[in-house]
């Protein structure tokens, strides 16, 4: 599973939420490939995925969360995907 988290650099509000999400996802699903993308350096990819607001999170190339989820919401969304991969 690949997770791409698009963020705006300098957003202190995003920094804490990102750290929490990453920790929760990797603890529950160690196989996750976690990629944090500075939207200004990955603008084309963000547009391709349909990112319109920040921060946003895509899983396996699908924009599952146009706004950042809670760790619980993220883990709930990853659960069926992890099962499919097994």
């Amino acid at each position: 599973m690949q997770i791409e988290l698009f963020y705006s650099p300098g957003c202190t509000q995003c920094d804490g939420a990102r750290t929490q999400l990453k920790a929760a996802a990797l603890q529950r699903f160690p196989q996750v490939q976690w990629c944090e993308c500075n939207v200004l350096e990955a603008l084309d990819r963000a547009v391709e995925l349909g990112v319109l607001s920040l921060p946003a999170l895509a899983v396996n190339g699908d924009l599952l969360f146009p706004k950042l989820p809670t760790p619980q919401q993220l883990c709930a969304a990853l659960e069926p995907l992890a099962r499919d991969e097994c």
Binding site: S8, G10, L43, V47, L52
Partner: peptide, 17 residues
């Protein structure tokens, strides 16, 4: 400034889209 910048970046994303 970060608040304004975030809105500018989001507007740029909308325009690029």
């Amino acid at each position: 400034c970060g608040d304004m910048r975030k809105r500018a970046i989001e507007k740029k994303l909308q325009l690029e889209s």
